[in-house]
Every structure is written in structure tokens, then in C-alpha cells.
Design a protein around this nucleic acid. Structure first.
Lengths: 337, 337
DNA sequence: CTGAAAGCGCTTACAG
DNA sequence: CTGAAAGCGCTTACAG
């Protein structure tokens, strides 16, 4: 068992040279007669080329390293699935690394990826230190950041239009007549979190309103829940909360309902992402949609052209998504429903 | 850029042979003096061994192929994360393939995996045709099925004790006083689905009860929701529903609540898996816990000993989990709460 | 179009 | 302990 079949054995059986076998399988030119003989022998022996050996020579492993965190946030499994499908369709394979949100894990991960001679790296919601970035650049391995920009890093990034999206969400709350609007923000250490906060502040300022509160929810369920409880337990309460993402918004809704408040009557909630769960009746969450499919497309495109060496310059792509109005917030004030 | 540093360059700089460099990095014996010189040169040049080249010679790629479907079911992202962490800790890396539930996709996937010379394969909730199984056996690549047994396949498998778990769940409904109990079953094409159905039927028969209905929910949200609606729209209605997994149970709860029924007063619901969402207040779902961490442990253990060639025999491991009583079902009849 | 040969970057017996 | 050499399974100029 495990008796590996090599191109040499196929060659012998087919009565041709080893190079001929290689040519047939690597798509190089070969006469119909040779091709036929080789294919027949290969089939009989169950031969398939060793991809690792091929990779060594061509310098192309056709492996893409994917680094992902936050798998408990429904946005990422979906993104992972779509990235995976898109990459498979192009004949690439994904070497996956899951990391925790802490930064220290990622150092080794990138080195491991590089050791495997990956052709490119997609980093979903993780930050790359300048040292790591340099490492990849030196190795000539393109990196694309997914759903997390990193200004000044020199890395390509694909995100949604976070400032604009957050402005839309906040504006919707303002237009519905809310005045005491709080923001449970995404992790301040991430550009995504900072941009959404910026959008919130812009909209509030534009309406001449003072934020009821801005608190970092760290993109974590328990932090968001605790924050919500604290906000709602006070003497004066917010009449609306914009959460930095859906994952936190669900925790906020759970907590607030448990306290006996009604959504959206006592307090309106808006999230960000539009993960599948947001549309389920149990939450029915108003949210800003991040168009996963278009973000994935852009990511793959960016990565592929970098691998092909077409574009050596860095691209930052922002994709806009609509506000999806649902039951967790009130429609426009005075608007018919 | 991309000027790959090889062991030969390190050797020249360190003034030793290429073999010496290799020995230092592959953990073979080398004198302290040599080791020091080599490490110094390697560091200066930023050298790291090419894992692909190493894999070619040793015949060990340290890559594990992971096939996963149903990523929209919260159980799998969690399992993926834990599998990934456990494997990384052992120095293995995961080549991931996401497949749809349809069987046709997996054929090519396994071939791709084999082409990459993976050391082993973990198949999460996907079935392997006998042809595929034979392919892996011939290639000497161990396969472990995760959360999906396949009797007669000769493959190792790790699952929860599905029959027992389903019996417990059903018994809990019976003990709470329900008599018109329906089962929205997991996909009949899967052993998991059939076993849970079996457990349901056993418990019902044991109590002298006739199932109100048994309908295949295909492990799909929309099918489960439609089934629930149909059941509840009838003249006589079930007073309890056991769903084949949590993912379907959530859909059932959403649908039933939208119809205006109350849970658990009008109808009690129990699921299977105990995914994180089950404990969130919005669902508060009574369910049978699948101990992911122990299932992952068992999977890794089984795979590793197969890779090391210690155990060539097939193992089928079933892990028991407790029933987690929550608000979607009533506690034991007459019990204080 | 085809075969003989070199070489990808390593590991590992084999002598010394 | 160490170096020279063979070889893992391929691809790819190079002649013919």
C-alpha cells in the first residue's frame, strides 16, 4: 500500500520517456498518439502528478494562506466559504490558520505560511505588524487584508465603506426622531472600528447632536452586553444604540430585552454587517449590509493580479452597502409603513 | 525581491557544507560550533527551510486535508476553529475545502487533497463514496469522519452518541407530560439523522406513544420552517417538537412564534448540538450537547495514531453529552422550578 | 514532437 | 561530527 506511482512508471508502461509523461500532464505539447498511450497507462496505474514536486520547480504552489479570526461572528464563516469557493474555482487551495484576536499568535502563522511557499496571503480582520509586512514583501508574497484596512502598511485592503455606512445608520436613527443616541463601538485597535465610530460622530455632529455615549465594545459579546446593561441602568437612558457590528448588536438586544425593555419602542438598535442571523425573526435587526460576495470578488481579483505580477501597487478598495431597515429600529419619522 | 535564500547560500556564508546546514535545521546531530555558525548565517540571510522540498524527501507534508460543509450551522465554525488550533499545536497545517451538501463536489476534492500529498484527511459531515475510500486506502492516507458515521465504509469516525442523545431529548418531552410529539428529522441520507430519529422512535415506543409525525428536515432552515408551519397549521397540532439539530430548531422557533404560538406553552422545542446561539436569550433552547472539544480531541488522536502507523484498524468513537434544559421546553412534570 | 539531462531545495545513508 | 553524493518526483531548456 502507499506504493506511490510516479511518472517514470507510467513512462515505462506507456513505452515513452518520463518527459513525455510530464508534458502530457503539464499541458505542454504532445502528439495525440503519445497523449493517448500516456493517459491509458496513467489510468491503469492510477497515476496523478505530485503537486509538491511540481510546485518546487515552477515556484508556484497554488496555495493561498488564509488567516482568520472571530469565527464566532457569523460574518466570517460566510466569508470563508465564499473565499474558499472562489479560490477553488481558480485552482487554488487554502491553507487555513485560525488565530485569536490577540496579536502575538499571528507572528508565527505568517512564517509558517511563508515556509509553505504560499503564493499569496489573505488576512481577514487581523493586523500585520510592520515586521511581518516586510517579511512578506521581501519574500515577494502579496498580502490582501480582508475587512480590515491598515493605513500606512503598504498592503492592499478590501473593506466596506465603513464611515459612510456608519453615517447612514446613525442618520437613520436621527431621522426617526432619536436624540439620545449611543454608540457601542467596534474595537478601537481596528480601523474598521475607528471608521464606524467616525461615521457615527460625523452624523451626530451634522445634526447638531451630542453623542449620548461612545464606548468600546471590543467586538465582543460579553463586553457589548455589559455596556448595554450599564447604559440602560442609568438615570437617563439612550433612546437608540448603534452597535459596531451585528455580533455585538445581538448581545445588546438580548441584554436589553432581559432587562424588560422593548425594542424599538424603548430603545432602537442598529447593527453593521447584515449577517444571516440579522434577518431571522428573533432579532429582525436593522443593519448596514456588507456585501460579502463583492468584497470576496474584489479580494480575489486584487490578489490574483498581484500574483500574476500585473499590479505591483497597493490598492485599497471600499465597497458600499445599503442600510437594511428592519424591526429593531423605527422607520423614518412620520413616514407611512 | 523574492530572491529565495537556500541552504547552499547559508552554507557558503557559514563556511560549512550544505548538509551541515540541513542537519542544523532538521534537528539531526551537529556540533555546537557548527550549529552556532549556521544559525548566525541563517539569521543574517533570513533563511528558512523550504517545507515543500522537505516534504518531498520525507514523504510527510504535515498537511491535513479538512473537508467541511454546513458552515452556516454554528456547530461547524466552532469545530473548525478547535480542529485548527489542535492541529496547529501539533505542527500540522490545514488545507481546507468547503463543499456543498451535494455529493458530487467531494469527488474532486479528495483527489486534490491526495495530489497535495496530505498526511491525513478529516471529513466533517460529508459522506465518502466507496470509490473515494478505496482511493485513500490505496494511497495510504488515513481518513477520519467527524460528526458523521458511515457504517461499512471501513473508515474511522467520531460522533456523539446520537441514539442515546435523541432518546434523552425525547424522554424529557415525555416526562414533561407531552403526548403529541413530532420529530423534524435530520437528513435521512446521513447516519446522524437516522440515529437521532432512531432514538426518538425508541423513546416513543418505550413510553407507548405514537409519534405525532416524523418528517425529514434535511438539516435545512427553510425545510424545517416549512415543516413546522405545516405541522402547526393542522387541525390537531403537536404539543412538542424534537428537531434533528439546533440549526433547524431555530428556524422552527422563528416560524412558530411568527404564527403567534407561544413556546413552550403551546409547543415545546428541543434541539441537538448546543451551539452557542442555543444559550442566547432570544432562543434559550433546550438541547443535547455535543461536546465539541472532546470530539475534536478524539478525532485528532485517531488521526495521529493512524498517521504514525500505530493503529491500522478502524475506530468508531461515540461521545455522550448531557441534555441541557432551557426555556424552550418545560421541566419535568410536577418538578419544582 | 521527443528523449536525455540538468536542476528545484532539501534529507539521508555513506565514508572518512 | 562532517562533507560529497545520491535522490525525492517533477519541469524545462536543449538537441535531434
Amino acid at each position: 500500500m502507499g506504493a506511490k506511482i510516479t511518472s517514470l512508471q507510467v513512462a515505462k508502461m506507456a513505452g515513452v520517456s518520463q518527459s513525455a509523461v510530464s508534458r502530457v500532464f503539464s499541458g505542454a505539447s504532445a502528439s495525440p498518439a503519445t497523449t493517448k498511450k500516456v493517459k491509458k497507462a496513467a489510468k491503469q496505474l492510477g497515476y496523478r502528478p505530485n503537486v509538491l514536486a511540481r510546485a518546487m520547480i515552477t515556484g508556484k504552489s497554488r496555495i493561498i494562506g488564509l488567516i482568520v479570526a472571530y469565527l464566532d461572528n457569523q460574518f466570517y464563516p460566510e466569508a470563508l466559504e465564499r473565499l474558499s469557493n472562489a479560490l477553488q474555482a481558480q485552482g487554488y487551495h487554502i491553507l487555513i490558520f485560525t488565530v485569536s484576536n490577540s496579536t502575538d499568535g499571528i507572528e508565527n502563522v505568517v512564517q509558517d505560511l511563508l515556509d509553505y511557499q504560499v503564493d499569496g496571503i489573505i488576512a481577514a480582520s487581523v493586523s500585520m505588524s510592520s515586521g511581518l509586512t516586510e517579511l512578506c514583501v521581501k519574500a515577494g508574497i502579496p498580502v490582501v487584508l480582508f475587512n480590515r484596512g491598515q493605513p500606512g502598511s503598504g498592503l492592499s485592503a478590501v473593506t466596506s465603506a465603513n464611515i459612510k455606512g456608519a453615517t447612514m445608520a446613525t442618520q437613520a436613527l436621527i431621522d426617526a426622531g432619536h436624540t439620545r443616541i449611543a454608540h457601542i463601538a467596534g474595537w478601537e485597535g481596528s480601523l474598521t472600528g475607528r471608521d464606524r465610530r467616525q461615521g457615527f460622530e460625523d452624523a451626530m455632529a451634522g445634526a447638531g447632536l451630542t453623542p449620548f455615549a461612545i464606548i468600546d465594545g471590543m467586538y465582543k459579546r460579553n463586553v457589548a452586553a455589559a455596556t448595554a446593561r450599564q447604559l440602560m441602568a442609568g438615570e437617563t437612558r439612550p433612546d437608540a444604540i448603534f452597535a459596531g457590528n451585528d455580533h455585538m448588536a445581538f448581545a445588546v438586544m438580548d441584554e436589553i430585552r432581559q432587562m424588560g425593555f422593548s425594542i424599538p419602542d424603548d430603545v432602537a438598535i442598529i447593527g453593521y454587517d447584515d449577517v444571516p442571523l440579522a434577518s431571522w425573526p428573533a432579532y429582525d435587526l436593522t443593519t448596514v449590509r456588507q456585501p460579502v460576495n463583492r468584497m470576496v470578488e474584489a479580494t480575489i481579483d486584487t490578489l490574483m493580479s498581484a500574483i500574476d505580477g500585473q499590479d505591483t501597487y497597493t490598492q485599497t478598495i471600499e465597497i458600499e452597502g445599503p442600510l437594511i431597515q428592519r424591526g429593531s429600529s423605527k422607520p423614518l419619522k412620520g413616514s407611512p409603513l
